[in-house]
Simulated scan of single mutants.
Amino acid sequence: MANTVVLVTGGSRGIGAAVSRKVAALGHTVIVNYAQNGTAADALVAEIKAAGGTAVAVQGDVQNEADVLHLFAEADRLGTLVGLVNNAGVVDLSQRVDEMTLARLTRMFSINVIGAFLCAREAVKRMSTKHGGAGGAIVNLGSAGSKLGSPNQYVDYAASKGAIDTMTVGLALEVADEGIRVNGVRPGIIDTDIHASGGAPDRVAQLKSRLPMKRAGTADEVADAILWLLSDQSSYTTGTMLDVSGGRAVLP
């Protein structure tokens, strides 16, 4: 695995951080992308290095094309890109659709959808055998919300993740014979700080009794699914959305 690189967008916290640790433990160089929290990214990189891994923190907002190009230029500098985890995403305060502003919607879809497309585009340019690459894997982070709709909370977020579901299938079929596998993971209620960023820091505690398993999932549980999809163990799996939601399929 010498000089193999995996890029994890939004990699400094939560699910992204868990993925970054596990990717580095396998011997890959991991690029820990972050948009604003350089302190968290630097701390994670230091942790990975202390454990014997190789990691680099790279700032970049995935909705900004110049930042995305910089991220992938760093990947080129470090080695051969073999994996992309499209994890960067945002949520917002709970609102009905008739309360949402254009600014909110633009931010939501620019980061969650356009950012994922831009990163996938650059990954394909490097991995595809059509472009002289040696193949690789892309894993997109969706959400159980894409099936539930998130009414009275985050319909915009759910819709953005619905776009990720469709993008995953379409891109997988587009590059299936070019050495690239594209899959997605749909987490349910996971105990990370994304809930606080959406104005509901106690959301896990509030919903726990209504979940089929009576608990939230962990970032590590989602990361293990992502690592499987990145690995050769899933060599005949592409175009698949894997639910890691503890059975939460129809509960609002």
Rank of each mutant, 00 (worst) to 15 (best):
V85A: 02
E65S: 14
S245N: 15
I48V: 08
A41S: 11
N64R: 13
T238G: 14
G53I: 11
V155N: 05
R104L: 07
E47R: 00
A103D: 14
K147G: 15
S20D: 14
A249V: 15
T218H: 07
R21E: 06
L148M: 14
D191I: 07
A25N: 08
G142P: 05
G199L: 01
L78C: 01
G199C: 10
D202C: 07
A134Q: 13
V6A: 01
H195D: 06
A17Q: 06
P212N: 04
L81P: 02
A57S: 04
K125V: 09
N86V: 02
G16W: 10
L26P: 13
D202R: 11
K130T: 15
H70R: 10
E178F: 07
G145N: 05
R203Q: 11
G14M: 02
G188S: 08
R13K: 15
Q59G: 09
D202H: 03
K49L: 15
L118R: 01
D67G: 11
R104D: 13
M213D: 09
R121K: 09
L44E: 10
L171G: 07
A18H: 01
G60N: 07
A196L: 01
G133Y: 00
M100L: 15
D220K: 01
L69S: 10
E47G: 08
I190H: 14
T166F: 15
R181K: 15
V97I: 10
A219T: 08
F72I: 12
R215G: 02
T54I: 08
D202S: 12
R96F: 12
V185K: 00
K208W: 09
I164H: 10
S160G: 11
A123M: 07
A51Y: 10
D165H: 10
D220A: 08
L84M: 10
Q36F: 12
L173G: 15
Q36T: 11
K161C: 14
I226Q: 02
F117S: 09
D165E: 12
N112M: 01
V68N: 11
A176I: 12
D193L: 10
N152T: 13
V185P: 02
S128K: 03
G10H: 00
L26D: 14
I138M: 10
E221N: 05
V62R: 08
V58A: 04
M100C: 09
D42N: 11
A17H: 08
L207Y: 07
A196R: 00
A17G: 05
T101G: 07
P201T: 00
L251K: 12
P201W: 03
T29K: 07
Q36I: 14
Q95D: 12
L84A: 09
K49I: 10
L81A: 01
G162P: 00
V250A: 14
Q153S: 13
N112D: 02
V8H: 04
D202N: 13
G89D: 07
D232N: 14
L7P: 03
G27S: 05
D177V: 15
K214P: 05
L227Q: 04
S197N: 15
Y34G: 08
G184F: 04
G132Y: 02
R13G: 01
L230R: 02
V244K: 00
G27K: 06
A158R: 08
D191M: 09
S94K: 13
G83I: 09
A73S: 04
G217D: 08
T240M: 14
G53R: 04
H70M: 09
S12E: 06
G79H: 03
A40G: 05
S235C: 05
V82L: 06
A57L: 06
T218L: 07
